[in-house]
């Protein structure tokens, strides 16, 4: 796998944010806030941690990623394009009539492991993938990304129990803990905290990180947290990260920027890109 410096990845995250907003603007629809909060996680997974590429995607040995919070599909589609699964221009058809780029992850799009969009499905599926890996003596790792609001679905906790029961250290769940869901603050809608203690009590190894810090994410994700236990990385994130007027603002859950907002967002990202060492554009 190509190796990137932390600054390379910081630059990539900004480019991903730009491309994600472009895709949402072009489609006239999209889950803006949750895509922006997840981008640094996806960046580190796909560019530093996971052994997955267009070349090995049909190999049973590949690492697997299932995006349980499927609504943040724009970020995933942008990252998969950057990995060479398809030309980025294909994303221009997102949500169009007869496009295979549906507004949630679908296996019609190369690089997508599983169809998601209804919340609370990723962790059970990944638990199955991880059990399969253990049965086969395979060394692939399985990753899933969950929303903090999504954790209210009971299926997550059924899978959490099973994953610990089977000692699935080949399974890593990442919670995009941006403290918001559609109705408002997760703590006001249905409080999921204390998350670390809950997962620990279920028998998981737990690490809490700044979900926008490339170094902390790399550290937490590069290897299983603890032998014999599934691992959960609680990523403290900011919904709408990277765009001042979207940050921590629940209204941006699935809002599409106006022309003016889009221009302002692009300007913020361009300025940030110029500030990253070694910026090429």
């Amino acid at each position: 796998m190509q190796t990137y410096t932390d600054d390379d990845l910081r630059r990539r995250s900004l480019e991903y944010r730009r491309d994600t907003l472009r895709a949402i603007k072009a489609a006239g629809a999209g889950h803006t806030g949750g895509s922006l909060s997840a981008i640094d996680i996806l960046n580190v997974l796909y560019n530093r941690v996971m052994r997955v590429s267009p070349e090995n995607f049909s190999s049973p040995a590949r690492d697997r990623y299932v995006q349980s919070k499927g609504h943040s599909v724009e970020a995933l589609f942008v990252v998969l394009a950057s990995k060479g699964f398809y030309p980025a221009s294909e994303l221009d058809t997102l949500c169009d009539y007869q496009s295979h780029f549906v507004g949630h992850p679908t296996r019609k799009v190369p690089g997508v492991e599983q169809n998601t969009g209804a919340l609370g499905h990723g962790l059970p599926i990944c638990t199955g993938m991880a059990i399969g890996g253990k049965l086969d003596g395979a060394d692939y790792r399985v990753f899933t990304l969950l929303g903090d609001g999504e954790l209210a679905e009971g299926s997550n906790w059924e899978a959490a129990m099973a994953a610990a029961h089977y000692g699935l250290d080949n399974l890593t769940a990442i919670v995009d803990c941006n403290t918001l869901q559609i109705t408002g603050r997760t703590r006001d809608v249905m409080n999921a905290e204390p998350l670390a203690e809950k997962f620990e009590a279920f028998g998981w190894a737990v690490r809490t990180v700044d979900g926008h810090d490339i170094g902390e994410l790399t550290d937490a994700l590069s290897a299983p947290l603890e032998a014999g236990k599934p691992g959960v990385v609680i990523a403290r994130t900011v919904k709408g990260k990277g765009i001042s007027f979207m940050e921590d603002n629940g209204a941006w859950h699935h809002k599409v920027p106006t022309d003016d907002e889009f221009a302002a967002a692009m300007a913020e990202l361009d300025a940030a890109l110029a500030g990253v060492a070694g910026a090429s554009q």
């Binding site: 949500c95 169009d96 507004g103 969009g117």
Partner: peptide, 8 residues
């Protein structure tokens, strides 16, 4: 939900 697809 149109283009949000089959899950929706």
């Amino acid at each position: 939900y149109g283009a949000l697809g089959t899950t929706h």
